[in-house]
Amino acid sequence: MPCDVMLIAYDGSDHAKRAIEYAGRFLAANRAVVLTAWEPMVRQAARMSGLSGVMQPDWVPDEDIDDIAYTDARNINEEGLQLAKAAGLNAEPRTAECSSTIWNTIVDAADELDVDVIVAGTRGSTGIRALLHSSVADAVIKHCHRPVFLVPPVTEKAPQSR
């Protein structure tokens, strides 16, 4: 029996594409919401200038022009939507503006939609790389009290011994 609502975190990466493929293979849902989180360029620029120690000039975007980050997010989300439909899922699009972190945006959307499961791909980082680059998927698991279906990255198979 299918679950009611599935949330698929989609950022356009190969890991996210693989997660959609496996969700279509192993999960069933009445609705599959493909979520792409995005951060406005103004905040990205401010964050980056803060990291570099450079003063960020006052800049207000033209309200008549879409933020390029939002335009990219819509395009990425459309790609994810088409992949989900091709995987046999009853998919619908959704973009969400990040006000803090990507994982928090995913958790908030899952709560708002009252989803039964969250689907995400992982980079599969281990060791020092995992310590230096926190994983969105790890943070979702730690902060969300819903089932999470994680799809690991493709690994090269070791030669089989005979």
Rank of each mutant, 00 (worst) to 15 (best):
P152K: 10
N104D: 09
E112I: 04
A87P: 13
C144R: 10
H145Q: 14
F149S: 05
D116E: 07
A139R: 15
E112D: 13
I106G: 00
H145C: 09
E112P: 02
T95A: 08
D108R: 12
I141K: 15
V151Y: 01
A137V: 14
S125A: 12
P152V: 12
A91D: 00
I128V: 14
N104G: 10
V119E: 03
L89N: 02
F149G: 15
N104P: 03
L113R: 04
S125V: 02
K85S: 13
D114A: 09
R129D: 13
D111W: 02
H145R: 15
G88A: 13
V107K: 00
A87L: 07
D108P: 03
G121D: 05
R146S: 10
G121E: 05
F149P: 08
D108Y: 03
A110Q: 03
N90K: 11
T122E: 01
I118G: 00
T95F: 07
D111A: 03
G127R: 06
L132G: 05
G121K: 05
A130R: 12
L150C: 15
A137M: 15
N104A: 13
V117P: 05
S100C: 08
D108V: 05
K85V: 13
R94P: 05
D108T: 07
A96Y: 02
A86N: 12
H133E: 08
I106E: 00
S99C: 07
V151A: 02
T95I: 09
I102H: 04
P147M: 13
T95M: 06
S99N: 10
H133V: 14
V107F: 00
E112T: 06
A130Q: 07
T105Q: 03
L132N: 05
V148Q: 11
G124F: 02
I141N: 15
K85F: 06
I118N: 00
A91F: 01
D116G: 11
L150W: 06
G121W: 10
V117W: 03
V117G: 04
I102V: 14
A91H: 01
V136H: 01
A109K: 02
V115F: 04
W103E: 06
L132P: 08
V107L: 00
T126D: 08
D108A: 10
A120H: 01
E112H: 10
I118L: 01
V107P: 00
I102M: 14
D114W: 03
G88V: 07
G121N: 12
A91K: 00
A86D: 06
H133M: 12
L131G: 13
T126W: 02
L89V: 12
T105G: 02
G121I: 11
L89F: 08
A139M: 15
A109Q: 03
T95R: 08
T105I: 06
